[in-house]
Design a binder for these strands. Structure first.
Lengths: 152, 152
DNA sequence: CGAGAATGGTTTCATTACGCAACTCATTGG
DNA sequence: CCAATGAGTTGCGTAATGAAACCATTCTCG
């Protein structure tokens, strides 16, 4: 039935040569990155994702399919008879730096002074340091000291 | 006139305690991050943004207002009589690591082998190295070796 | 074994967001 | 003064989202 509609996701890239635009085309909606975040935090099943995000179920169905179709998630058979579980692929796991930078921006700019928020810690319970672009020689880089060059 | 509707943007946070969710609430739509990207790349005026992104103008108006309202952009008076220009605030510039990680993910996962794409270079024309989370001691971190802790 | 709950969806319908094209209004530039 | 440009607005049709109800298989347990 509505099986073929799944392909209808990418009419074309917003900007064919910009990697930022392509990534935003794939995960730049209200839910995809939160689904990825939860997958990184241990969510596996449909209801895991549904309960953690509060997303509408039909939308969740579509997002899981889209992320699977684009190779960010894979469906794995559960050890017991439970139907399907989702796991991050390598490509999905590679979004970790994106999630981390989004989180760090939010920690700095989206909370009032008194508000508490969750934090990201490593295996020892130490906070993960801020992720900042640096040049090959280690000097810090900003949008003012970098530029985008065409081609490759 | 429709001035008060601008406030209608944040009904509430998707997940009040998660910095990722708050950031996604602010910039997690199809255009905001591309607007920020273009601002970092030198776009200043309404038509700069409109032409670079191809976004519909009414949507651009709304996004510019939203980003301004949330402190990512500011309106500055142009030297000549041109009406308004937009500039990134410090908070807006702090999204640079987010743009960089999105770009780097796209470069790796959203292009076929033969396709060319733009690249980010520093002042010397050298490619910006990949941004990867590391612990305080410099060891690499992944979603498997980190966790989210409540409070702060 | 059979009833009820849980899982993983699908369907329907209402609301909202988005995109396009046409229109407005204030400044220049000539 | 007239045309062109920049910066939006408005109206309207289509697409995306959300809420709630419905459905088909498993589990779960008396």
């Amino acid at each position: 039935m509505a099986r073929d509609d799944t392909d209808r996701q990418s009419p074309a890239w917003t900007d064919p040569s910009c990697p930022v635009a392509r990534t935003v085309d794939l995960v730049g909606d209200r839910w995809s990155l939160l689904i990825i975040r939860d997958a990184m935090d241990g969510a596996r099943s449909f209801t895991d994702f549904q309960q953690r995000t509060g997303i509408a179920r039909n939308i969740l169905t579509e997002r899981l399919r889209k992320l699977t179709a684009h190779g960010l998630l894979v469906q794995v058979d559960a050890p017991s008879g439970r139907r399907r579980l989702y796991a991050l692929t390598e490509a999905g796991k590679d979004l970790f730096p994106v999630i981390v930078t989004l989180r760090q921006w939010g920690e700095r700019h989206a909370f009032e002074a008194g508000e508490t928020h969750s934090v990201l810690v490593d295996g020892d319970g130490a906070r993960v340091p801020d992720l900042l672009p640096v040049a090959a020689d280690g000097s810090p880089l900003t949008s003012d000291t970098t530029s985008v060059r065409r081609h490759t």
